[in-house]
Design a protein around this nucleic acid. Sequence first.
DNA 1: GAATGCGGTGCAAATCTTGCAACGCATGGA
DNA 2: TCCATGCGTTGCAAGATTTGCACCGCATTC
Lengths: 297, 297
Amino acid sequence: MRTYELIEAVVRAGSIRRAAEECNLTASALIRRIQGFEQEFGCPIFERLPRGMRLNPAGELLMQHIRAQRSDLARVQAQVADLTGERRGHVSIACSQALLPYFLPEQIAAYRAEHPGVTFGVNVRDRVQAEKDLAAFESDLALVFEPVHMVDFEVLFELPQRVHAVFRASNPLARKTEVRLRDCLSRKLVLPSAPYGVRHLLEMGASRRRLAFDPVLETESFELIRHYVVEEDAVGFQIPIGLRSAQQAAIAHAPISERDLPAGRLLLGQMRGRVLPVASAKFARQLEAALSGTAGP
Amino acid sequence: MRTYELIEAVVRAGSIRRAAEECNLTASALIRRIQGFEQEFGCPIFERLPRGMRLNPAGELLMQHIRAQRSDLARVQAQVADLTGERRGHVSIACSQALLPYFLPEQIAAYRAEHPGVTFGVNVRDRVQAEKDLAAFESDLALVFEPVHMVDFEVLFELPQRVHAVFRASNPLARKTEVRLRDCLSRKLVLPSAPYGVRHLLEMGASRRRLAFDPVLETESFELIRHYVVEEDAVGFQIPIGLRSAQQAAIAHAPISERDLPAGRLLLGQMRGRVLPVASAKFARQLEAALSGTAGP
DNA sequence: GAATGCGGTGCAAATCTTGCAACGCATGGA
DNA sequence: TCCATGCGTTGCAAGATTTGCACCGCATTC
């Protein structure tokens, strides 16, 4: 059991000696445990490099097993605590930035109002990293826009979301119920950077119509986008779940016409085949209910 | 790790002292390991009875985790052996008796012809026990007729199978392409005993038409049924996958009319959510292919 | 070519696990 | 009623494992 932790430490540290220091052990003690394990496992799990150790393919398989095993044990312990009547637990969720301003805080608060013993961990991840988080058992749930659909991602719920243009409330665009892409391109643009789903959809839509973007500001922060359009009367892009006109009177938004951009999908998912801890599974069901009550694209 | 084996031994034996003997240990050593584990696990997993120990609910949950963990580790080791180029492995399958005479031996032989390093374990189980086998990770696959559809049973393939009447080749019934239930009831009957799917379907069909069985022989052995109908000119019941007229010239069979009995289902399944070892997964795919080529009801 | 950092090993000390004997307790039969 | 039996549990010493220290051979780096 402890051997598993040591193996993980070696993987993280990249060498026996650094891992040994991290674990308050000597290198010799550590290497012998690993040699012992490799012997009973049947084959080496590390390749020995002159600069340290790295997992070989067998080790990668084993590592995945170790992570799955650890997370399942945590699930069992949470379930046991649950039947002892404690109603404790922890929910970790990897999500896009768009969920941060309104949706997630509301949902978490609502859940905790009923289950005060449950704690939360929110990891802000782009759509690629979110799925890696699931696969490494570092997040129970992922709520992301337009994920790169890896095999390990099991979809629990799907909500269409159109891309919205965001601008000053005083902008002429604010009078329309939907805007065309070309109306935006003639204005100053504030775009999310490459890894994000909104940017991805925009690039797709633009290249199909042989248009090009020339953003005045490109950023990872959706919050910055929302605030900057007010400063310089520019146009930004977001998905509606992260927008509430009522909260920020200076800002307005309208969907891009579906003739220009197809609606993207906001997906709630988990690691394929995994049995979630009770708290996470229950929170997932709450999210599904909330999302299905949300206006579509 | 070893602690898990010891816990399993205590569960099997029902008491510390018997388990200790089985493991070549003293009772004191064993109990201290279990106490140590319970401490780090966070709560007791056994209830102490005056006559021994039994798992409490927390222990049941843990036990399920241990079994899942062990079987997944075996899968990883098999997969590692596979990528080392060994092409070894073991497939365990729980199945109904009907598969024993022709279907399974042919399929296993065909598989082993291509992968001689793979060994097989065939556990003959009734439809209830087969699913328990899956849940306890004692069989990778189950191939059963009309299972009691527990939640843990994940269907991989489904093949309709009508119940066939089995009789002497010289019996007048042999001239028909299908027989009515009432034609059989007037004859001497040889029935499989209660836990079997064929019997279950027969009871259902009979009770719906207010008929009753009065078997001259009731047995757990499908083989005995086939052979006995020759002895006394009786009528037995089986599913066609276990019948080949060509092999036993003295025996004929014909399906019961669907007006009397609905077709049952022969199901191939695995433990829900489990990742099967490569060999088992591959054998399952072969079975699916073979079953889909088999004549239906 | 010296210095650094790496994985690996021999040997003795420290730590943990185990076996033995014994205790308290509940049950079952004489 | 009382004794025998089998249960889980514990104190203590012997045994088995794990660990730390010093050191080796090796490749890379400056």
